[in-house]
Write a protein that binds this DNA or RNA. Structure first.
Length: 621
RNA sequence: GGACCCGUGGUGUAGCGGCCCAACAUGCCAGCCUGUCACGCUGGAGAUCGCCGGUUCGAAUCCGGUCGGGUCCGCCA
């Protein structure tokens, strides 16, 4: 990363507050910044002067500079002041090793108050003080003055800079795409912007530049990227905001391994440039098929910083003739009905209290399990409420399959395969956190790919794209893009299409989905077939993807790409799990901007001009 | 759409039927102090306990509603 510009001097300052060192001793200097703290000894006043570059101690001595001392005694926290003086080495024994500038101080000759400040509503100068988040959001400009926010926004700036550098160095073209576009079918609700020039019509804000970047591929921009703002009108979470930032990229003439290889190299370079001190757990990144990830980790975004894999207990419960014979009816019936009995081992949790077990059981219920069986290993035997029902063979088998040793706790879920994996996967995350199994510094990237192409939507009797409606199909599965009857409008859950796998890949970091992409359907005929399976009629296809379908008739190159969540990436690189911590001005869970007080009631004139009026709104604020 | 948690001087917390016209820390204001760096010492101001209603002889405290914030499920890539 290049160093900061050599000089940030301005008419108000010769140096920043993080710059002065002993080699400058004896020289005059002028600093400007905010009053971080003031220590008043009557005839002697210390002021810690702060800007985003650091803190420098200013000394104002009434004997040397009576006028400056007079001004300094009126100064308060967060006042903006300028100080002119002499850089001096501190007296031996009074250096402050906590400050980068701690060996020197500025002996003031002149102090000027540039602007006074009200007493702030919370501590700007205490990095550890807990503050209610709504207060921080309301006074975000003060919150951002605080060290932690400065650090995170700086990291984010470095991240975006590194992203741009890698792409520019690799032949990518940065292209901006419009924010006023047409609704695209990506599952989420659109934000709508009414048109004044064409009353009665609306634009949609992009959920992502998906279609536009594919059109850029048709346009011959063979490597495109953009740091793009995206909008989705869905309920918020710690990792979801209504507007967020994606690194969006697309490449032409590529197959799946080629795009993944580029992205992987880019991600590694960007990570190393942004947080060189954090180790990347494994390079090249591990690659899991979707099925495998679900089977082993119960998640399509596994946290690989710790193992604790799921295991299948059926082998310990099956007789030679294939019939289940664990001795515990719930297990046997589940297996007999085609379900799965799977488990996870929590190392060292064998001594868990009743209360802890109850909590885990309650969690499992919330995750959708009917129950949770727990077995602890003590003195070489399995213990637990249902241990007595289990046959000797099953008990031995469980211990082996679970890899459970003395003092471990084995948690078992019997359910459909899908649900058992899901519940255990969530338990794995929960246990990993409770047992602090993950190294917080480590960056564990991995790939998950080969997702099923479609999911059956019983209500609409159609095949929904699991990820992106433009994802391509794995070449050998191409013949599966059809229905039982061969008529694409006569769809059923038994269609071959249900078995088709997509050339879709997600990149995962520490248990979070960082991004997802695919090699696209670039052939016109396949695209039409896929849309058809997704239940779009010809008219709907023309209405919604007219430009794209048409463009694909003019020579679309094979292409693929990805979109990465920049907010999530910046958050994880900053040890945060809440993207609000890396956004300058985020919104609350109910979508409010507490600082600007948005959203707000519309201006009647604006509404009239657009031919709009609220109907059936409960009550205006 | 649903479940749960939180709301008390500027800030962070304590108090959870009467001991509370509310306690502690910090901040704020005033005074003193020439080597501090979370300076120290002395004194002072500052809260109708988010809001509305109910229960009760009595409510910060219990109940209902409402508003705001958060976590999670649904939703969302």
């Amino acid at each position: 990363m290049p160093a900061e510009p050599a000089s940030l001097a301005t008419p108000y300052r010769t140096h920043t507050c993080g710059e002065l060192r002993t080699d400058g001793a004896g020289a005059s200097a002028r600093l400007a910044g905010w009053v971080h703290r003031r220590r008043d000894y009557g005839k002697l006043i210390f002021i810690d002067l702060r800007d985003r570059h650091g803190i420098t101690q200013v000394v104002v001595d009434a004997a040397d500079a009576p006028d400056a001392h007079d001004v300094a005694s009126r100064v308060r926290s967060e006042f903006v002041i300028a100080v002119e003086g002499v850089v001096a080495n501190r007296q031996p024994g009074t250096e402050n090793p906590k400050l980068a500038t701690g060996a020197v101080e500025l002996q003031a000759r002149d102090v000027a108050i540039l602007n006074e400040a009200k007493t702030p509503p919370f501590y700007v100068n205490d990095p550890d003080a807990p503050i209610d988040e709504s207060l921080r959001l309301r006074y975000r400009y003060l919150d951002i003055r605080r060290e932690a926010m400065q650090r995170r926004l700086l990291l984010r700036s470095r991240l975006v800079q590194a992203i741009r550098e890698v792409h520019h160095a690799t032949g990518f073209v940065e292209v901006e795409t419009p924010n006023l576009i047409k609704s695209t079918p990506e599952g989420a609700r659109d934000f709508i912007v009414p048109s004044r020039l064409q009353p009665g019509t609306v634009y949609a804000l992009p959920q992502s530049p998906q279609q536009l970047k594919q059109l850029l591929m048709v346009a011959g921009i063979d490597r495109y990227f953009q740091i793009a703002r995206c909008f989705r009108d869905e309920d918020l979470r710690g990792d979801r905001q209504p507007e967020f930032t994606q690194l969006d990229l697309e490449m032409s003439f590529v197959d799946e391994p080629t795009v993944m290889a580029f992205i992987e190299r880019m991600v590694i370079e960007v990570s190393r440039a942004t947080v060189p001190e954090r180790p990347i757990r494994q390079v090249p990144f591990p690659v899991f098929r979707f099925e495998e990830a679900m089977e082993r980790f119960g998640s399509d975004k596994p946290d690989l910083r710790f193992a604790m894999e799921l295991f299948d207990l059926a082998p310990a419960m099956t007789a030679d003739d294939g019939r289940p014979e664990s001795g515990f009816r719930v297990f046997d019936e589940t297996l007999a009905n085609g379900g799965r009995v799977k488990g996870i081992t929590a190392p060292g949790m064998g001594g868990a209290t009743r209360r802890q077990i109850d909590e885990l059981t309650e969690l499992s219920r919330r995750f959708g399990a009917r129950g949770l069986v727990h077995l602890s290993v003590a003195e070489g035997e399995l213990h637990g409420p249902i241990a007595k029902f289990l046959s000797v063979g099953t008990r031995t088998g469980i211990r082996e399959l679970a890899g459970a040793g003395e003092g471990d706790l084995v948690l078992v879920v019997a359910d459909t395969g899908e649900r058992a994996n899901d519940v255990l996967g969530r338990l794995r995350v929960e246990l990993g956190a409770r047992l602090e199994l993950a190294d917080p510094d480590e960056l564990a990237y991995c790939w998950v790919h080969r997702f099923p192409m479609y999911q059956w939507d019983e209500e609409h009797r159609r095949w929904d794209a699991t990820h992106n409606p433009f994802s391509g199909v794995v070449p050998e599965d191409e013949p599966l893009l059809t229905t039982v009857s061969g008529d694409l409008d006569d769809r059923s859950p038994r269609d071959p299409a249900g078995r088709a796998r997509a050339m879709q890949y997600d990149i995962v970091l520490n248990g979070w989905e960082l991004g997802g992409g695919s090699v696209r359907i670039w052939r016109h005929d396949l695209l039409a077939r896929s849309f058809n399976l997704q239940g779009y009629t010809l008219e709907q296809m023309r209405e919604r993807f007219g430009a794209m379908l048409e463009a694909f008739e003019y020579g679309a190159p094979p292409h693929g790409g990805i979109a990465l969540g920049v907010d999530r990436w910046a958050a994880l690189l900053s040890y945060q799990t809440n993207i609000r911590e890396v956004m300058a001005f985020p919104k609350t869970q109910s979508g409010s901007d507490l600082m600007l007080e948005a959203p707000s009631a519309p201006d009647e004139e604006q509404f009239a001009e657009l031919g709009l009026r609220f109907v059936g709104v409960p009550e205006k604020r």
